[in-house]
Design a protein around this nucleic acid. Sequence first.
DNA 1: TCCGCCATTCTTGTATACAAGAATTGCCTG
DNA 2: CAGGCAATTCTTGTATACAAGAATGGCGGA
Lengths: 245, 245
Amino acid sequence: MAYTAAMDVTDLNLIHPDAGSDAPRLATLLADRIGERIAMGDYLPGSKLDELELAEQFGVSRTPVREALIQLGTAGVVTLRPRRGAVVTEVSPQRLMEMFDVMAELESMCARLAARRSSAEEREALRAQHDACVEAVESNDPDDYYLRNERFHHAIYHLSHNDFLEEQALALSRRLRPYRRLQLRVRARVTSSFAEHLDVVEAICTGAEDLAAERIRAHVTVQGARFADLLASLARAGQGPAALG
Amino acid sequence: MAYTAAMDVTDLNLIHPDAGSDAPRLATLLADRIGERIAMGDYLPGSKLDELELAEQFGVSRTPVREALIQLGTAGVVTLRPRRGAVVTEVSPQRLMEMFDVMAELESMCARLAARRSSAEEREALRAQHDACVEAVESNDPDDYYLRNERFHHAIYHLSHNDFLEEQALALSRRLRPYRRLQLRVRARVTSSFAEHLDVVEAICTGAEDLAAERIRAHVTVQGARFADLLASLARAGQGPAALG
DNA sequence: TCCGCCATTCTTGTATACAAGAATTGCCTG
DNA sequence: CAGGCAATTCTTGTATACAAGAATGGCGGA
């Protein structure tokens, strides 16, 4: 799964066990679309995904829908309850923090390797990615900033020059996507995020691997006041406590 | 997926998207068994997994076999080539090293958290797990040692008290299982592995988190002479270069 | 003899059928 | 009126059927 600067953001949601995706199975296409709906909040955590209903919506039989749900289930996006159907996985605040901690560790590793391995051209490209965020910051558009921010983070994964690490980081990033977006809705978070990015860029570009690793870890980890912020965002987004499980 | 000391080793290969596994689907059981065969080297990397053949072997229809292969595919154990069948995922030496690097990072995080968070009883239990390996070392039985070694590593994941991290580490451990086994076949590796384990236990039990993290990282990472050893093991196990892809 | 093309066979992908377990509703009882 | 039991309905899990694409083998030509 090679990264390119022109890569469309919609690519980032893909669930692909397939090798060559020229003629993918219906199940894979469906997994992408259902996963997209979940990421966009169309299906809230805990809500049931009815096979027949989805089959009718997409105009296919139950078989590929089932296979799609199994893919999403193995990826952790939905939870398969044997003989009781699939539901969107509910993520407790506790678990969310755990996931962010692991994300921080992976990104930290990426940043360290990026500082150690990236070429001068790659570092310039990274700086360009960062600069591209400035517009979104000035217009204070969290959604636009989220997209550019995402590309920036993914660029760092890529600069690790460890393809497997990049894949793992992308996969986790995908699962955390809805929540990372929420985080940016907190007042002034966009501005502080942007400032933190700059520090990361500086560390990577000067080859300061320890610094780069620590800075991005601090940037990603949900700690202190940011935990309370996240809780508040979750409560608002879920329209009630049920969504938290 | 709660860990218990009495947990049977056969549990360690499970591919479980299911919530409660009291009445699992056939597909999940099949995924476990097929995954076990792959881990044990019954199916070599690159070899094809025929749906009908597997169905007949297990006395079921193609449907649950297909679903099992999809689960294994999403987990990365097999590669699904659309309309061309499933094959055991081929891992190049390059990629294998990348995977071990990520495994080292995750285990390092586990060990650090274990040193920080584990209780006195838990530390005692970990030491007991380590002591249990001594028999296998003395009899120099790599396969037996592998099993106890695996339990030891998984115990550390559990002591991290980060369930998500534990799951991720277990999943990657599963993918690396066949190769970790191979590594132990190298002369004297069992002995050195055991010695390294002891150092890790000491660090965790004294709460030396940095030391614990570094020691287990060094233990897991494939570096220096061990890379050549691994290459040699791969070549022998694969009965030729084709198995490496 | 070797390469390439076509027909055949086989395998996978999707749809449908059927069975078994879960959820629901209504009724009966306390 | 509430709680629990039972029959019904619905959903999932597995098996089978069918169609379309891939692999294979044989034939013909260079």
